[in-house]
Design a protein around this nucleic acid. Structure first.
Lengths: 218, 218
DNA sequence: CCCTTTTTGTGAAAACTATCACATAAAAAG
DNA sequence: CTTTTTATGTGATAGTTTTCACAAAAAGGG
C-alpha cells in the first residue's frame, strides 16, 4: 500500500498544512499570545488567509468572527485531528548521516514523537550514536514486535530498502517514511510515504533552469 | 519568491515524475534494454500507465504505437526538458549530519549535479568533510559570486536560516533547497523549495493514526 | 443604540490534475 | 493480404484543490 487516497473526504494537502499551523501556534503560544488571525497563520507559512480558513472549515474548526482564534484551543483541536499524542515511538533503519541527522532532530520530541532506536548492519555503527541506541539490524524485527513499534524510517541504500521494509512489516510496522530512491511494495498493509531528496533538488533545478535559460517560457 | 506557480502551462506535478522516469530509464539503459513501455515506467514508480502517457503527451513526447519508447531517446528528451546538464554546481550551508548526508549522496553526480563546497560557522566542521571542502561561512557570499553558483542547500538550524538565505541571495544564488522548518523570504528573485522532514514524518503519522484509531473514518 | 470596522465561514466558481475510454497505428500471426 | 493483438495519444470526463466574494457576526466608538 502506498498512501491511502482518501480518508473520509479530507483534502490530503491540508494535512501538512495542519502540521505547519501547529508549529506556528506553538511559537505564538510560547511568545505569550493566545490570539491569532488567519492572515497571521497564512503569512507564517506562506499561503493565503482564505486557504487557512478553508482548511479550518473543512475540519469544522471555528474561531470568533472578528476575534480570530484562541491559540491554545486551536492547538488542541489540531493536535486531536492529527492524532498527536505523547509517546509515538519510531525507529530508524540505517544509521548513516541521514539516519543520525534524523535521530538528532530537535523538533520531534516537542511533538510527542520519540525516536527509540536505530538499526544498522554495520557493527561499527552500533552502540550509541548521538541520542539513541543503535542495534544490529538482525534485532530489528524482534524489537519492533516486542515494543509494538508502529512507525519506521528507512534511511538505507536503495538496494537494501525492499528487504529492510519486509523485515519491518513482518515486525508489525504500519507506516514507513522512506528515503531510499526506489518504489517499495509492502507485503501486508503498511502506509509508505516516500521522500526523495534527489527528486527535490532536481525539481528545484528545473525551475531555476526554466526561469533562466528559457525566460520562464518552456 | 516561492515556487513560481506556472511555467507555461506545465502541470507542476509532472516535473517530479519526469525526474523519476529519468532515474528508471537510466536503470533500464544500464540493464541493456533500449525499449520501455508506459506500464513498465508506471509500475516502477507506482503510478498508472495513463498518467505516464499523459505526462509525455503534455511535453510532446511521442513513442511508437505498439512499440513503446526508445529508452535512450526518451532519456535525452527528458533531460532536455529538465534542463539537466553536466556541471550544475551546488553548495551547502550547514555541515551538520544532514549537510554531510547530502554531500555524500551518490545519486547527484550521475545527474550532472556537483556539490562543490560546504560552509559552516563552526571552525571544527571546516576543512574536509567526506567528499567536499568545507569553508567558514564568512566566505560563502564571495564563493558564490566568484564561482557563479546558482543553487544552494540550506541545512542550518531554523533560527539561522533567514540570515543564511540573505547571504546566499546577495552572493547571487537563484534557487535554494531549504530544510529549515521556517518560511523564508528572499530579498531578490530566488526560487525557494522547502523540504520539512518533521512535516513529512507527522504527515505519515496522521495516516497511520487515522487508519488505526479511527478505522479510516475521520 | 446605531454605525463602522474587522475578520470569520462558506457556497460558488475557477483552476488544476488524474482517469477513462477509445480511435489509431504498428506489429505479428495466419 | 487480412485479421488479430497490443500499446500509444489524447479528447472528454471526473475529481480534487484553491480562490473568490460576500453575508454574517462581533467589537468598538460616538
Amino acid at each position: 500500500m502506498n498512501l491511502p487516497q482518501k480518508i473520509a473526504g479530507v483534502n490530503k494537502n491540508s494535512i501538512p498544512r495542519l502540521v505547519q499551523y501547529k508549529y506556528v501556534l506553538k511559537k505564538v503560544l510560547a511568545s505569550g499570545s493566545d490570539r491569532v488571525y488567519s492572515n497571521e497563520l497564512a503569512d507564517a507559512i506562506g499561503i493565503t488567509a482564505a486557504q487557512v480558513r478553508k482548511d479550518f472549515s473543512l475540519f469544522g474548526i471555528m474561531g470568533n468572527k472578528r476575534g480570530g482564534y484562541s491559540v491554545s484551543d486551536l492547538l488542541g483541536i489540531i493536535q486531536r485531528i492529527l492524532g498527536s499524542q505523547p509517546g509515538q515511538d519510531v525507529i530508524i533503519a540505517g544509521m548513516g548521516h541521514l539516519g543520525i541527522a534524523l535521530s538528532n532532530y530537535k523538533g520531534f520530541e516537542k511533538e510527542g514523537i520519540c525516536i527509540r532506536a536505530g538499526f544498522d548492519i554495520d557493527p561499527v555503527k552500533c552502540g550509541v550514536q548521538g541520542n539513541i541506541p543503535v542495534y544490529p539490524f538482525s534485532e530489528c524485527e524482534g524489537y519492533i514486535s516486542n515494543r509494538n513499534i508502529k512507525v519506521g524510517i528507512l534511511a538505507v541504500p536503495a538496494d537494501a530498502a525492499q528487504l529492510v521494509l519486509d523485515v519491518m512489516v513482518r515486525g508489525g510496522v504500519e507506516g514507513v517514511l522512506n528515503f531510499a530512491p526506489v518504489h517499495l511494495m509492502a507485503q501486508r498493509s503498511c502506509v509508505i510515504h516516500d521522500v526523495n531528496l534527489g527528486v527535490e533538488l532536481e525539481f528545484l533545478l528545473y525551475f531555476v533552469n526554466a526561469l533562466n535559460n528559457r525566460g520562464g517560457k518552456a
